[in-house]
Design a protein around this nucleic acid. Structure first.
Lengths: 342, 342
DNA sequence: TTGTACGCGTTATCAG
DNA sequence: CTGATAACGCGTACAA
């Protein structure tokens, strides 16, 4: 069944005017008499006329839509970012088209292929953990599609980027564990190919080095799909706990990994913070309500969305080619609670 | 700056053909010679030609986009529903345009006004808690816009609806509290105007009646904005705790209210489940990891999204006017944990 | 003050 | 086999 709506032509016919007169009357052009304007406006209201945005888009070569690509919508961090993006976009009169990669490069390719064939005016993206080939993004970017990266940014592509100051966040978190007498601090990270993974691990290493603790690669584990595959966190956690000298603390380097780890520790009845100390990325309010309450590195997700959207619109609305790009780095909140203090 | 892409016309010019020939060649029409087809296809690939979806939309009177309207994206329940919707939509080759009402009728009006001026082929909506006037939705619906309601459905409008079996969920939850010797069971609900609020309270009343407990209106409180306004949950909770005979258990009738209540109880250091028993709607995995773990009524959110989307596409793709509508009622999972058993 | 014609990108129809 | 033209809905330069 089709959804039919009135057009300018319908109004013109009904009122015995030409379409251009109607068009001008509706846009309140000075060339149209008040009498005609009134007739047109009254009739338009009566039949509830709305201009067809598709026709406008075709004409103006813009869609008033932006695309947002994230790994998973139902992830607190991403949904908060989307919240921020939507808040700005709706004020600007733009639609927000959401897609999720589920951490798959293939899906990401499909989405980009699909979205960017001119159905969006700009793109805000956090790449999937599998993505290592940025050529399609690069191609789109060099063709003039405005792109803003957030969270999982692509170093090679020169455009606006909004990230958390991952290094200091993790540095601070790790340092805190060290000061609380944890001796064997392990890290569970997202895919090693992600830029943010590298940054976060830098923070971890920096804290260890500054406190003369040796960096032991055996204590660093990766989840290629950021914990989205059900068993990957469980596997690396088992590996860690099976070490001869098993770790006494964990730094969890992504939201999903934090959630999964907490679930597994609870299930295995491992005592936090005594048996193992925990601090990790999380944007869930529930971490404060748990017992023990969970120490977290909290990203300014809503703000990140707002800033990303604002930067994107500055690109979209810019008349000239922008060559000066911003790298916005937001300080995370490192919130110390019970899970990291024995 | 604009994002320019190649068109059929560019190909035609470059190859010295007419646009119609190029169009047909690309669509592999039988009337075109293999040689020409090959030339066109090769060149199209070379310049990375993609048909302009906006032009297609104008011609075909469809946008391959659906609109999704929820109260708040960053709410676990809604983000899980959106996840389900997106999963189906992406398979069907549809874009998902997301908007949030933030529980405001005014915003909902704006969104509908905007979205439905032919930029979407169908709408999936859970109305805002403020919405009492459904005339715009009704108008859109009777004009032929396919609509599917989920969660907060509109009784008056005849179309597909997907809901949780709210009554039995709450009935079962309340009965469970009664069987666990709770005597003064209060309920905190979303706006009294919402259909689901009525249903949920029916479940509450039914359980009380069946166990010969008197229904005391003083023990039922409402949050007009579903807990989105920061202080509303705190206020009603204070009122309840100030009752001469204060309640010894709470049934929390929406996700947001459950989260807020748990936060406040923790803050006030009120002992759960002894001082007060808790069971409430929640779709957050964290409820299982809290201490005490929280008993919940869990909606099948992802599934609800999948079903809503499937039903919507059946409407969108239907050739004739559909008059036979489904009301899908999904059984919630009532998960009994520690917070409701003293 | 109002109307005609064109173009945005595409496909369908009709001509050749 | 290929090309010209109309149409989708709109806004605007140009004509009247």
């Amino acid at each position: 069944m089709k959804f039919e709506a009135a057009t300018i032509k319908d109004i013109a016919k009904a009122l015995g005017l030409s379409v251009s007169t109607v068009s001008r009357a509706l846009r309140d052009s000075y060339e149209i008499s008040e009498a005609t304007k009134k007739r047109v406006r009254d009739y338009a209201r009566q039949i509830n006329y709305r201009p067809n945005p598709v026709a406008l888009s075709l004409k103006e070569k813009r869609t008033l839509s932006i695309g947002v690509v994230v790994a998973e919508i139902a992830n607190t961090f991403f949904s908060q970012v989307i919240n921020g993006i939507e808040s700005i976009a709706s004020k600007k009169g733009y639609n927000v088209i959401i897609s999720q990669t589920k951490e798959s490069y293939e899906r990401e390719e499909q989405i980009l292929e699909y979205l960017t064939s001119r159905s969006i005016d700009g793109l805000i993206i956090s790449v999937s953990s599998e993505t290592e080939d940025f050529s399609r993004l690069e191609a789109l970017h060099s063709k003039g599609l405005p792109i803003v990266f957030f969270d999982r940014v692509v170093d090679e592509i020169k455009t606006h980027k909004v990230i958390t100051d991952n290094l200091s966040g993790v540095y601070e978190a790790t340092r805190h564990l060290i000061r609380n007498k944890y001796k064997r601090i392990a890290a569970i990270a997202n895919s090693p190919t992600l830029f943010i993974t590298k940054e976060r691990l830098e923070g971890y290493k920096k804290a260890l080095e500054e406190h003369n603790m040796i960096y032991n690669p055996a204590l660093v584990k990766y989840c290629a799909h950021g914990g989205l595959e059900p068993e990957e966190v469980r596997r690396v956690l088992s590996e860690l706990l099976a070490e001869k000298q098993k770790p006494d603390a964990l730094v969890l380097l992504s939201d999903k990994i934090t959630t999964e780890t907490l679930r597994i520790l609870k299930e295995k009845n491992i005592q936090v913070p005594n048996e193992i100390g925990i601090i990790g990325f999380s944007n869930s309010d529930y971490t404060s309500m748990m017992s023990p309450s969970v120490s977290i590195i909290r990203q300014r997700a809503f703000e990140m969305g707002e800033i990303s959207a604002t930067l994107l619109f500055s690109l979209v609305e810019s008349k000239r080619k922008v060559t000066d790009f911003e790298l916005v780095s937001l300080a995370p909140e490192v919130i110390i609670r019970e899970s990291s203090q024995k």
